[in-house]
Simulated assay, not measured.
Amino acid sequence: MIRLSRPAAVLAPLGLALAVSACGQPAAEAPAVVEVTDAFCRPTQAGRAVTGCYMTLTASRNDRLVSAAFAGAERVEIHEMTTTDGMMRMAELPDGLPLPAGEAVQLKPGGNHIMLLGLTQPLAEGERLSMSLTFEQAVPYEVNVVIAQPAASPASHSAH
Score class of each variant (00 low, 15 high):
residue 21 S to I: 08
residue 26 P to K: 10
residue 29 E to V: 14
residue 30 A to G: 04
residue 31 P to A: 15
residue 32 A to N: 09
residue 34 V to Y: 02
residue 37 T to P: 05
residue 39 A to E: 04
residue 42 R to L: 14
residue 43 P to D: 09
residue 45 Q to E: 15
residue 47 G to N: 07
residue 48 R to F: 09
residue 49 A to T: 12
residue 50 V to M: 06
residue 51 T to I: 04
residue 54 Y to A: 01
residue 55 M to S: 06
residue 57 L to M: 04
residue 59 A to T: 02
residue 61 R to S: 04
residue 66 V to A: 04
residue 68 A to E: 03
residue 71 A to C: 00
residue 72 G to R: 06
residue 72 G to V: 11
residue 73 A to I: 03
residue 76 V to Q: 02
residue 77 E to Q: 13
residue 78 I to V: 13
residue 78 I to L: 15
residue 83 T to N: 07
residue 83 T to G: 00
residue 84 T to G: 00
residue 86 G to E: 01
residue 86 G to M: 03
residue 88 M to N: 12
residue 89 R to A: 04
residue 89 R to Y: 00
residue 90 M to P: 00
residue 91 A to S: 14
residue 92 E to H: 07
residue 94 P to C: 04
residue 97 L to F: 04
residue 98 P to R: 06
residue 106 Q to M: 09
residue 108 K to G: 08
residue 108 K to T: 09
residue 111 G to A: 14
residue 111 G to C: 06
residue 113 H to V: 06
residue 114 I to K: 02
residue 116 L to K: 03
residue 118 G to S: 05
residue 120 T to M: 05
residue 122 P to A: 08
residue 125 E to T: 15
residue 128 R to H: 14
residue 129 L to W: 07
residue 133 L to H: 03
residue 136 E to A: 15
residue 137 Q to T: 09
residue 138 A to C: 05
residue 139 V to P: 07
residue 139 V to K: 15
residue 141 Y to D: 12
residue 141 Y to S: 14
residue 142 E to G: 10
residue 146 V to I: 12
residue 146 V to W: 01
residue 149 Q to M: 15
residue 152 A to T: 12
residue 153 S to G: 13
residue 153 S to L: 05
residue 154 P to Q: 07
residue 154 P to C: 02
